[in-house]
Each structure stands twice: as structure tokens, then as C-alpha cells.
Amino acid sequence: MNRIAIIGCGGSGKSTLARQVAAVLGHPLTHLDAIHYDQQWQPLPPEQFAAEQQKLVAGDRWIIEGNYASTLPIRLAAADTVIFLDLPAAACLWGILQRRWRYRGGQHADGVYDRITWGFIRYVLGYRSAMRPRIHALLQKHGPHARLITLTSRQQVNRFLGQRQR
């Protein structure tokens, strides 16, 4: 596990898991929100966002967390491990509410942005039916060489972390 892509629905715990795995393995961690958005929540142009990821994946060891399906092939092609947090919508919505309570909204120091809109809630509710098939297709096309770890509950995430800490 030297080049790890962590993907999943908003609120699934990607950022938290990424921080914990980075602490255990000592790999550099990148939150894609921190690259994609500036302080005013303005996105980078798509070409620049893709170019930044090309630079990141050129390293020998990294953890990159975030979805961004349009640039997922860049990360999948270079990753040796993909961790897919495939949690139910209710768990993701609960994660979003906990994050809102903890951070009180806005952009966090690590670049993750806590922004809840009706569009985002609809995205979370429809993630498994709309995005999961797309993610699986991208995994088959761009990441068949990578070890895929799919975690479908917070309990599985905790067990996975417990195994890493031994």
C-alpha cells in the first residue's frame, strides 16, 4: 500500500480515514478539495486540476482522497490500492451532520469544504444508484491492477483501521 486512492460518497468518511491511514503509514496525504477549490470555493479549471493530479500520482508514496469522477482515471491508473467507502446514504448523511456540528461549516484547515445544499443531499441520496455503477466501470477500465478494498459500514472501516495499526 504505497499509492492509495480513497473514494466514496460525501459524508462516507474519506477524509477521516485518509488522515488515519496516513498517520499509520507515514505517506503524504492530499485532500482533493484543497486542490480543486480556492478560499472562495472557486474551482480550478479542469485542465489545471487534472495536471495537479498528474504531478501528485508521479510520487512513489501517496494517499489521495476525494471523488471527482472526471479525473478518477488519473488516480486509478497510478494507484496500487483503492479504498472505496460504499456506505449507505443514511450513514453518509449522518457523517455530514456530524462534520457540520464539529466544524460549523466553511472550509477546514485541510482544505475540505463543509457545504450542504439540497443538490448535495440529492447527490448523497442517489450516490449508490447513480455513481456506484460509474465508479465500478472506471475501476474495471483504469484500475484492474489495483487492490480494491470496499468497506460498506463504519464497523468495517474501524476493523480495517484496527488491522493497519497492529
Rank of each mutant, 00 (worst) to 15 (best):
157 V>F: 02
91 A>F: 00
75 R>E: 00
2 N>G: 08
146 A>C: 02
125 L>C: 14
116 I>K: 05
124 V>W: 05
2 N>T: 05
7 I>P: 02
125 L>A: 06
126 G>R: 13
18 A>Y: 03
128 R>S: 15
123 Y>T: 10
53 Q>W: 12
19 R>G: 00
23 A>F: 06
91 A>Y: 08
150 T>G: 02
39 Q>S: 13
145 H>Q: 06
142 H>K: 11
30 T>K: 08
150 T>A: 09
34 A>R: 10
154 R>K: 12
159 R>F: 03
8 G>A: 15
87 L>T: 03
98 Q>I: 10
23 A>M: 01
35 I>F: 00
2 N>F: 03
104 R>L: 09
27 H>T: 11
97 L>G: 08
142 H>Q: 10
98 Q>D: 11
144 P>W: 13
166 R>C: 06
9 C>V: 14
157 V>L: 03
113 Y>H: 03
6 I>V: 12
8 G>Q: 06
155 Q>E: 15
65 E>V: 05
65 E>S: 11
166 R>K: 10
103 Y>I: 07
43 P>T: 13
1 M>Y: 02
19 R>C: 05
38 D>T: 14
35 I>Q: 01
130 A>C: 08
137 A>C: 07
14 K>Q: 12
60 D>F: 04
97 L>I: 06
137 A>I: 03
154 R>G: 04
105 G>K: 15
46 P>S: 13
91 A>P: 01
37 Y>W: 06
91 A>I: 08
66 G>N: 12
79 A>P: 01
81 T>E: 05
161 L>A: 05
33 D>A: 12
74 I>D: 02
34 A>G: 04
25 L>S: 12
161 L>Q: 07
1 M>D: 14
110 D>V: 09
54 Q>S: 06
160 F>C: 11
62 W>Q: 04
22 A>L: 12
158 N>A: 15
150 T>F: 03
139 L>V: 05
24 V>R: 10
74 I>T: 13
160 F>N: 04
135 I>N: 09
135 I>P: 04
76 L>V: 14
148 L>H: 12
31 H>N: 15
160 F>S: 02
149 I>V: 10
133 P>H: 05
134 R>D: 09
135 I>R: 01
18 A>G: 01
21 V>C: 01
107 Q>W: 07
128 R>W: 02
84 F>L: 06
86 D>V: 08
29 L>Q: 10
123 Y>K: 09
107 Q>H: 07
108 H>M: 15
146 A>P: 05
116 I>S: 00
60 D>L: 13
152 T>V: 04
114 D>F: 05
125 L>E: 02
163 Q>D: 08
76 L>M: 00
122 R>C: 09
71 T>Q: 07
22 A>S: 00
155 Q>C: 10
50 A>W: 12
162 G>Y: 04
139 L>K: 04
97 L>M: 14
142 H>C: 06
150 T>M: 04
36 H>Y: 07
60 D>Q: 13
22 A>C: 08
44 L>T: 01
147 R>L: 15
111 G>L: 10
82 V>E: 06
130 A>Y: 01
105 G>V: 15
112 V>I: 08
14 K>V: 11
102 R>C: 14
165 Q>F: 04
141 K>D: 02
20 Q>K: 15
138 L>S: 09
19 R>Q: 14
96 I>V: 09
109 A>L: 01
143 G>P: 00
22 A>K: 15
47 E>A: 14
53 Q>E: 08
120 F>Y: 06
155 Q>H: 14
137 A>K: 08
21 V>S: 09
137 A>W: 09
55 K>H: 13
117 T>D: 01
